[in-house]
Design a protein around this nucleic acid. Structure first.
Lengths: 193, 193
DNA sequence: ATAGCCGCTTGATATTTGTCAATGATAATT
DNA sequence: AATTATCATTGACAAATATCAAGCGGCTAT
């Protein structure tokens, strides 16, 4: 049970048998169906979510009523509304499943306990956060420096799984485009080639 | 010496006298003049920089030859090219001073040593990284969901110091706009009021 | 003191992207 | 199996923003 979760942990830190046992007592497995919410805007985010199977996404609704996708989370990735989780304020994001999914939830309070009890897990959390930070930083500069087609191309190269498994209008939203613009960009690119 | 640095540390964690002494042995003070580089694209980033006084910025040059500002760092903030620093690959960013500045550099290798020797500093690093992550996340969603004027207004509210001390064409770049567009947006806003 | 650079503004025009509307295809639901 | 959603595409048009060019102070350095 939870093979992927511990595999991911062990890629970065080494846990003893006892530590792994401690961990297990804090893991909350949960299965949800496609389109089900794990967090809705306005609720307080009390869990960090690890994806064992399926795809989740986080998104906001802007003033015009459009979904703006913040993040996708495939197998082995983490997702939450970090800001809501640490401040206790109502979430700005929604998180739901794009495919039937198997998740592991960890209560935000338990996360801190785990970081205290298992020092290496604090290190893991730091490294995890660092990677997440870099990813956002690069995505942001990409949004500002790259044109539409380059942004899409880069996504295809970096995360082909996302492009294959997620509807294109969501990819468009993730890239800061409309579905129409992405469709035309793709057509334009295929003509060139 | 380095009052601001330790003040910032103590806001989050508590250090003993000895620990503070350990810290001091790893701090590299450095003063630089306006327009001087602390990192140039292509070099490997080997330091994390803490700003004691002045303002730094990081930026890239896009294909059209325009500067794209990634980040500003005022007094009490940290700045580096994280990706280059942890991978050892050539930096994609330039970092330079917008005002004469007093800095504290910490070698990337020493950062890890400090995190090992002073466990609370690992916690500090984690929390620091978490805040930086959240800041980027929100900035990214702001770029996608907010219009030009709202983006600018939000920046003025959140970081009035930046707006006051940094030339407007750099603010524009930071917000993903041209200098002209920001100028017109500001005019439009002042007419309304 | 002055020549030159830098930062900001304004206008005219071009480009990109968004919006609205319609269609066909595929997948999901009853 | 029939009916409804969902998704991708396309066209016509509108809106936002970039680009190019010029001018105007104010600050800096010689």
């Amino acid at each position: 049970m939870h093979e992927l979760f511990f595999k991911k942990l062990r890629e970065v830190i080494s846990l003893s048998e006892e530590e792994e046992a401690v961990f297990r007592t804090y893991l909350l497995p949960k299965k949800i169906r496609k389109k089900q919410y794990i967090l809705q805007e306005g609720d307080v985010c009390r869990y960090t979510v690890f994806v064992e199977k399926g795809i989740l996404r986080s998104y906001t609704i802007n003033e015009k009523g459009n979904e703006q996708i913040v993040q996708f989370a495939l197998e082995g990735w983490w997702i939450s509304d970090m800001y809501s989780m640490i401040t206790g304020e109502p979430a700005k994001y929604n998180i739901d499943a794009l495919e039937d999914a198997e998740l592991i939830l960890i209560r935000s309070t338990d996360l801190e306990i785990l970081q205290e009890r298992i020092p290496l897990f604090l290190k893991f959390s730091f490294l995890q956060m660092r990677n997440a930070y870099i990813a956002f930083e690069r995505r942001l500069t990409g949004m500002a420096t790259l044109g539409t087609e380059e942004r899409y191309t880069k996504l295809v190269q970096s995360y082909p799984d996302i492009v294959q498994r997620v509807p294109q209008h969501m990819i468009a939203s993730y890239l800061g485009l409309t579905a129409e613009t992405l469709s035309r960009a793709r057509k334009h690119m295929s003509n060139k080639k």
